[in-house]
Design a protein around this nucleic acid. Structure first.
Length: 423
DNA sequence: TCTGGGGTCCTAGGACCC
DNA sequence: TCTGGGGTCCTAGGACCC
């Protein structure tokens, strides 16, 4: 039983969003820049026609901008987020189930519509009329095929922005014409590997033996093959998942050449990270620091490192994060030849996030018992009260641990020296 | 001079547990 | 005390996506 799923994405979304409020941007080349105005991350069709590629550094296209009067914008994520939300509202009028995949893409449940193409066309027209953003829609039995249909609709104006690929014979005709590297989830590395194995098109990959896909790639590639065959492996997720991590990263204007410079950057990132955590009402269980040299300069000595530490207790406190970040930075700092490296990028990542109100209340929940003395204490308690023994930290986590089976049971206290070492 | 930032998922290998 | 099997968890790194 094939369930039709659609994916709708906005054309050149950031540019389209800017165009809503400035009619003079219509039909002229427009680009939107990345956070630090470093490179172009959205281009209008006219800008693409001028050969401006995704991610091109701004300083590489100065001449083109001047010569063709390209309109250049810094990105405005508040605006884009707002437009995105409004587009989703229109989607919700056309399907009972919407899965927001990114700021400009949604999967739409298309089960039960008689004329899917007509329905998609109507949706497309409604988004254009109510919001002013053009969208393209691909429909297929799996998400991967839907992405593929969407991509084909995007590249071939003949489809007028909608392609329904539920019909297997249509898919069989189209897939040999899709380069393998265009498939969702097949990146540059995998493309190279597949090409060397004479797998060049979506149809080639679809026909690859499943075991072979597993050895060439990972379970991810295996899933892609199945999805291309029409077997849905990626479920429709209509509940918003709890986010798993967050990051604060920046490129450094001037290279960081000593530990103090690096630590200064890391400190700023850590305090911003703490802010973001509190904004979202979260605490983090682990903190990772990473930094590396300029990867665009392979002629220079390269060094890249990441170090992770556990936050005990889980925290969104600025000082806690900075302390943890410092530990990581020190651990990752090159042991020799540090002066030969020019670090140009650094960041922190926060993982194992939980809502503040759900955070574990006892130290023991987080600090796994590693010391033999504590293990023995725990074993003793387990022997007496069973495995369900509750383990509580004492007031303030300062001096003792208390282990008890329930609220009325006696308390067992271990000395501070016996506390587990937490890395 | 100047090359984004924020995410997810997967794997290998080691440590550790029972 | 030793051994092996069956697990989990953790870290570092890679690949990919928008």
């Amino acid at each position: 039983m094939k369930r039709p799923v659609a994916i709708s994405d906005s054309a050149n979304f950031y540019v389209s969003a800017e165009r809503i409020f400035d009619p003079t941007l219509k039909s002229v080349p427009v680009i939107v820049l990345s956070n630090n105005d470093g490179c172009a991350i959205a281009r209008s069709d006219e800008a693409k026609a001028l050969g401006i590629k995704m991610g091109t550094p701004l300083h590489h296209i100065r001449d083109k901008i001047d010569a063709h009067g390209i309109r250049v914008f810094s990105s405005n994520y508040t605006l884009y987020g707002d437009i995105s939300r409004r587009v989703v509202e229109v989607y919700e009028d056309f399907t009972p189930n919407v899965e927001i995949y990114s700021i400009d893409e949604c999967f739409l449940d298309f089960v039960g519509f008689k004329d899917r193409t007509a329905h998609a066309m109507a949706l497309r027209a409604a988004v254009l009329r109510r919001i002013g953003v053009p969208v393209r829609i691909g429909i297929a039995p799996t998400k991967t095929l839907a992405k593929c249909a969407n991509d084909i609709a995007k590249k071939n104006p003949i489809f007028a922005g909608v392609l329904d690929m539920m019909d297997e014979s249509l898919a069989n005709w189209l897939l040999p014409r899709v380069p393998v590297g265009d498939i969702w989830g097949v990146g540059r590395k995998t493309t190279d590997k597949l090409r060397s194995l004479d797998v060049h098109t979506a149809a080639d990959l679809r026909d690859m033996p499943i075991r072979r896909a597993r050895t060439v790639g990972t379970v991810v590639l295996e899933r892609i093959v199945l999805e291309l065959q029409g077997e849905a492996c990626l479920a429709f997720e209509d509940v918003e998942p709890q986010r798993k991590g967050m990051a604060v990263t920046r490129s450094a204007g001037t290279p960081m050449t000593d530990f103090d410079m690096l630590f200064q950057a890391i400190t700023a990132h850590a305090s911003r990270g703490a802010e973001k955590l509190r904004q979202h009402g979260l605490v983090a269980g682990t903190l990772t620091v990473f930094f590396h040299t300029n990867k665009h300069r392979p002629d220079r000595p390269q060094y890249a490192v990441s170090r992770t530490t556990r936050m005990t207790p889980m925290s969104s406190d600025t000082f806690d994060l900075i302390k943890a970040a410092r530990r990581c930075a020190e651990a990752g700092w090159p042991k020799s030849d540090a002066n030969t490296f020019f670090f140009t990028k650094a960041g922190i990542m926060l993982n194992d996030l939980v809502r503040f109100e759900d955070r574990p209340r006892t130290l023991f929940d987080q600090a796994r018992p590693k010391s033999p003395a504590l293990m023995k204490a725990l074993d003793d308690v387990n022997d007496r009260f069973g495995k369900k023994t509750m383990v509580l930290a004492s007031e303030g986590m300062k001096q003792t641990w208390r282990l008890r089976a329930d609220h009325r049971s006696p308390r067992y206290t271990t000395r501070m020296e016996d506390l587990p070492v937490v890395r």
